[in-house]
Write a protein that binds this DNA or RNA. Structure first.
Lengths: 187, 187
DNA sequence: GTCTATAGTAAGATAGAC
DNA sequence: GTCTATCTTACTATAGAC
């Protein structure tokens, strides 16, 4: 063959990374296969050498994105983990979905996708929640924390930038610190 | 004219109601104008007598849906308000987006829409948050509560039905009751 | 494996009859 | 105001050359 044996999986990896960023930014179903492939430096014809359908790509994106997020949240110390959580509720995260968490950006589209995509999501969320359990008392609080973080970013992004958006992030941050039993920061 | 003077606004109201349900279920950008109009018992040609573009419809849906939600949350007594909140975190709400809250269903698409849509969302959320302020101590907690509710439904819907989904709703419900200073229910 | 080219369908939006 | 019919563009997916 004219390509190295590792070429295909490397290309697929680049594909999933590039299309993941674009999907988080513009939305998955709102983005065409042409645009996805252009973002990865290829043309649409090559797409189906890697995926049987567009839906299969979403499945791969979900698995890849949640794996990346799980690595981020698996911080070695509690203080580092807290910094990651504060960053999650930052204006920077709200303003840059393309480099942020896939959950607030894609969850409703995952909910409308097939069972395979939802199961990929469940598996990814399991790994994520494991990191959260190390920070709070029990399972229920870990899920509450996940919901708090995701909901705040979802609502903040739908609001225009301004005081309301800031208030959502501020309110969620305080509640998060309460949930974690940490004293609220000044600044 | 061949139609009653009130016909247009009545038709527009039916249109916004029917398309709102469909948008919440299938996604706004994933649904075509043809499908939207069919849901309202009309054909696509009539659409542009009511809206200048598809985006303008989303704006109208957002305003209408949040107004309906604000009425729901403006419960007369605290106990009734609590029942509404528990219903928000119910399996029924997760399983029926078409008759549920527009925020978890459409927020990411609102975030990607134009400034006009985001401002319609901001106005609607202002009315909603006013109802929440009556239930908690301060402004920050009201936003935290909103985030908690929205995030739990967003995450629960993306998960397949099963123990993980139930745990998300359960965890968020407990956290909500803590936030409201209410004792946790048995059952 | 990736390209160009294209089939076939569906999208958003408009025109003209009633 | 709503219909049918249509324009134009974009979509998902496939075919065949390299």
């Amino acid at each position: 063959m004219r390509y190295a044996p590792t070429h295909k999986e490397e290309a697929r990896t680049r594909l999933v990374e590039a299309t993941g960023a674009l999907a988080k930014q513009k939305g998955f179903s709102a983005t065409g296969v042409d645009s996805f492939m252009a973002a990865a430096g290829m043309t649409s014809g090559a797409f189906y050498a890697h995926f049987r359908s567009k839906n299969e790509l979403l499945e791969a994106i979900v698995a890849n994105e949640l794996q990346r997020s799980a690595q981020l949240f698996a911080a070695p110390t509690r203080e580092q983990a807290l910094e990651v959580l504060r960053g999650y509720l930052s204006h920077a995260h709200v303003e840059h979905p393309e480099s942020g968490c896939a959950v607030p950006a894609l969850a409703p589209e995952i909910a409308r996708a097939g069972a395979a995509t939802q199961h990929a999501f469940e598996q990814g969320m399991g790994a994520l929640q494991a990191s959260f359990r190390a920070l709070v008392d029990d399972d229920a609080k870990a899920w509450a924390l996940v919901s708090q973080l995701v909901g705040a970013v979802v609502v903040a992004r739908a609001l225009p930038s301004g005081p309301a958006r800031a208030a959502v992030l501020e309110g969620a941050t305080r509640q998060m610190e309460l949930l974690l039993g940490e004293p609220s920061r000044e600044s």
